[in-house]
Design a protein around this nucleic acid. Structure first.
Lengths: 246, 246
DNA sequence: CCAAAAGTGTTAGGAGTACACCCATGA
DNA sequence: TCATGGGTGTACTCCTAACACTTTTGG
């Protein structure tokens, strides 16, 4: 088994970023010419996988190659494999020609990733490719390649659901964060405003949200207390609860 | 695009059945000879997909071909594609040889299905193949082909989680069911005993569980009232709640 | 001293939990 | 009449939801 490509299986990365205000998603600009017409559209970073790598490995490698991003949270979603997913838009044929098997069938395995943008995380982005962050409410529906808009909608829905039951919010925040930042993530992703006081009342019960003896610096209003997420404590509590309930 | 097989992509069906007492899973017996030794082991129904069918279609077709089961609830799970998933157990090489590409890489897309066994649903099973129901606690770990035990564990965990938030229990029950049957499913799948009275107190709030003017027949104890699940009402309520919360 | 976001308590209603006895049927 | 599973109510606790003013900082 060598590192040749598997012609029927690709991975795609749907990377969500949070800049303390908006939830964004990362797209790669594509300039193609099909039958003499030029198209400028967008796609998620992704490519065919290689014979000698696992799915997760492949997804990480391709994301790093295309955007420079690495060491970020990733989770696999369901596979998209409609027969016509690469041929619904005629211009997409150019990709099939590029990879040298027109009329071939490719199923794609999407992964979603979460990242904190205020972290300098996107410094490399522009160097490596024509990547751009789009507000999730502004994703250019008609200008996405292949079935990528369908994949996007499914992913966003999944993210909104999983945020309720898994500690994903902390992947989108800086290491040290304020309770207002945390609340804003829940409000943006779930889509409903939350009551300040009620939200804060829950925090002391969640022992994995650990208060620090630090405050925000140089903000022109009362500085907020900072917290960190302790994955250790989170996993310990989760295990205990599981054991207890069985 | 014809109906030839895609050599790198398969689907597998993990079918759960409920017989009013136990949760079971369906396995296909396999008799193979590898290097002169005979092996009798088990696998999930599954096969390579064809070029001319969608993933869901393929999964339905293959399940029907291998077991006779059709028109049952199905949901796609995450894809399994470890490099060595087909070669960890030497005897599994026989399958790669059968499909005519030894050393080939195959990723598999698992679907889980739910079915009510008291329905006569498994009448065809024995006619078509050497399929057998195993209690989920009795699945022959070491006797499963490929990475199917890993897939099984993941699927069972997913089922236990999704049962809490989606109306899956009704797929496992007969059309008309008693509250005791419903309770038993939750107890078995979630794994904890529930209080009878508290469980029943919640039912009247769930308007999609509709009481009938019917009772169990010919049971040697007080006959239970029967209920049906109304998917219409369920979806209407779900939509309303969604609209409300946004 | 002004603007901007942080921080803080109380009350009322609803949901969850613990718990034990009588009822209807077939054999 | 017995065995078997079906059916029912109450009291206590805990969680949720609604709601408005004061504090700290930089400019």
């Amino acid at each position: 088994m060598d590192n040749k490509l598997i012609p029927n299986v690709s991975v795609d990365s749907i990377v969500f970023g949070f800049d303390s205000v908006h939830l964004k998603v990362l797209l790669i600009g594509r300039d193609i010419v099909y039958k003499g017409v030029q198209y400028n559209d967008w796609k998620f970073p992704g490519d065919l996988i290689r014979c000698d790598e696992n799915l997760d490995t492949s997804s990480k490698r391709i994301l790093k190659d295309m955007t420079g991003l690495e060491n970020i949270y990733m989770k696999q979603l369901k596979t998209f494999g409609a027969i016509d997913r690469l041929t619904r838009k005629p211009r997409d044929m150019t990709w099939l020609i590029t990879i040298n098997h027109p009329e071939e069938r490719v199923v794609t395995i999407p992964y979603y990733s979460l990242i904190n943008m205020s972290n300098g995380a996107n410094n490399n982005l522009k160097l490596i490719s024509n990547a751009r962050w789009f507000n999730v409410d502004d994703v250019p529906n008609l200008n996405l390649a292949f079935d990528h808009y369908e994949i996007f909608k499914f992913t966003l829905k999944t993210l909104r659901n999983e945020l309720r039951t898994e500690p994903l919010a902390f992947e989108l925040l800086p290491l040290k964060f304020s309770l207002s930042q945390l609340q804003r993530i829940y409000e943006i992703i779930i889509g409903i405003p939350l009551d300040r006081r009620n939200f804060r009342k829950k925090i002391p019960n969640l022992n994995y949200i650990v208060p620090l003896n630090e405050k925000e610096m140089s903000v022109s209003h009362r500085p907020a207390k900072l917290y960190i997420f302790s994955r250790d404590i989170y996993q310990k509590l989760k295990k205990e609860n599981f054991d207890f309930t069985i």
